[in-house]
């Protein structure tokens, strides 16, 4: 199977997350991921993109970029936001505050679950600051065995 490197750029608005979720779900299904794993991948994508829109962008004129990579071993998704400057209402979700957010997460809380879901359901989860002042989140989902899907 040829490697794929797909790039998407959406406005920083929740409206555009749903079509991306559908696209990634179809891609994961086509790659042979089991039904439950497709649901996991779609949920992780939804959570990571929601965080990028709500906490990683000033408004809808900003963009959220996605880079989706496929090789014989894994589906990899990188979500890049541009940051919110110094807006304390929006920029609470940063790599530096990750441990604090995780420590404060409670089942009876309304916030802070997205990052926990992304870490729990992906095989690899990485979060780091990027050179635009925003955050890159990279999640990887490995195939159970090397993928031989013919394209």
């Amino acid at each position: 199977m040829p490697k794929a490197d797909i790039e998407l750029k959406i406005p920083s608005a929740v409206f555009y997350i749903e079509p991306v979720r559908a696209f990634v779900g179809n891609l994961a299904r086509s790659l042979g991921f089991p039904r439950k794993r497709v649901a996991d991948i779609q949920l992780v994508l939804d959570e990571v993109c929601s965080n990028a829109v709500h906490h990683g962008s000033d408004n809808a004129t900003a963009s959220v970029k996605l880079r989706i990579g496929v090789d014989d071993h894994a589906l990899e998704i990188l979500v890049r936001d541009t940051g919110t400057g110094n807006d304390p209402q929006k920029n609470w979700l940063t790599r530096e505050r990750l441990l604090e957010i995780e420590a404060n997460r409670s089942p009876s809380g309304e916030r802070g679950h997205g990052i926990f879901i992304a870490k729990s359901l992906s095989d690899t989860h990485e979060m780091q600051s990027n050179d635009t002042g925003g955050t890159d989140v990279r999640v990887v989902f490995y195939f159970l065995k090397p993928n031989k899907v013919k394209v």
Binding site: R21, A39, Q42, L43, D46, S50, G109, E110, H113, G114
Partner: peptide, 17 residues
Amino acid sequence: VNHINSTAVGALVGVAK
């Protein structure tokens, strides 16, 4: 419903409380 994210679950929890 076939998909629910943490924002929706959080809303349900918050209103229930």
